[in-house]
Simulated assay, not measured.
Amino acid sequence: MHFHVLGTTEVTHHNHHLELGGIRQRAILAYLLLNANKVVATSQLLNAMWNGNPPPTARKMVQNAVSGIRRMLTTTTDTDTTTPALHTHPPGYQLRIDTETIDLYRFRRLVREGRHATTTNNPHHAAHLLTEALTLWRGRALADLVETGTNWSELAAIEDERLSALEDRLDAQLACGKHREITPELEILTTTEPMRERLCHQFMLALYRSGRQVDALRVYRRTREALIDNLGLEPGRELQQLQQRILEHDAKIQTPVLVG
């Protein structure tokens, strides 16, 4: 059984999609998956499902959804000891599960391995691992629930994890001399995330290494304007230093030479 939260909420078994029930049951399953192997208090579930304003029947609705999830988890005939199980565990519930069956946790593992490869000076392997991690995403996390108004703080944090992994992958590709290949992607990303300074830094570096100094400096000005207009802040020191190094044609920011 495999669980998917990086996109529409789905559960598959031998490539067949399982029926997850109504929106409330899907949401409770998704919340338990985000908190896999942790005890989630019933009060926490109620707050998440009804934004702190549960109806009088909310606890019964949660109990019904939990029963439905348990039935779904036991529909398979597998005897695998890793089959997930939803336990009642005061003060709430605990979904005991092998996290390798959840795409979010596989994503996090691959990102950790990719970052380790970066710290051991293996950018090619890092780029491969981080690319593999990012391909697990099929859209916005829990996209079907977001469409119905779900706005958990966990979702914003997971989206930030995706962007950070994307930036790590771009850094690895820059270290591999792939600046020309990633320039079109960075152009789109800096348009959708105009105040994300790390993306701007990467775009400027990719442009400069592609022989486009004027364009790199134009990106700096655009980012600076966005930061001042929206936040009243100047760019950070790293971005300012990169602008100066581009102006000076500093050899330290030229394409890196990989050994081996």
Rank of each mutant, 00 (worst) to 15 (best):
V40F: 12
Q213G: 05
A65N: 02
I158Y: 04
E161K: 02
L95R: 01
T183R: 11
I253G: 01
R218M: 07
A165Y: 05
A65E: 01
M72L: 15
H89F: 09
R108L: 09
L207C: 10
Q241P: 03
N64Q: 06
L45A: 07
H116G: 12
L46H: 01
E167T: 05
L155F: 11
H89A: 15
H13F: 13
L33I: 08
V40H: 00
G149Y: 10
K178D: 15
L134R: 07
N47H: 12
H128R: 15
L207H: 02
C176N: 13
T101K: 15
R112G: 14
F203E: 06
G260C: 03
R169F: 04
N37C: 09
D144E: 08
L247Y: 03
L186D: 04
N35A: 05
R115L: 12
L258F: 10
A27D: 11
E167P: 02
E147A: 15
T131G: 13
G236R: 00
T135I: 05
S153Q: 07
F3Q: 03
G232M: 02
G232N: 05
M195G: 10
F3S: 03
T81M: 12
L233Y: 00
E10Y: 02
A117V: 06
E248Q: 11
L258M: 10
W152H: 13
G260M: 08
R169W: 05
A127E: 09
L163V: 03
L231T: 08
D168Q: 08
P56N: 05
T77H: 13
I97H: 03
L242K: 01
T131C: 11
L95V: 01
A156S: 10
C200L: 13
A58P: 07
L142Q: 04
E19G: 01
H14M: 14
L130G: 03
H87C: 14
H14T: 12
Q94A: 14
N35G: 11
G52P: 06
P184D: 08
V259E: 12
E225G: 06
G149S: 07
W137T: 07
L189W: 00
E181N: 09
T190W: 06
T255G: 10
L174M: 10
L136N: 10
L34M: 14
Q254V: 01
R221E: 15
D98R: 04
C200K: 00
L258N: 12
G21I: 03
Q94F: 02
N151K: 07
R198N: 07
P90H: 11
L242H: 10
E100N: 15
T183Q: 15
R140S: 13
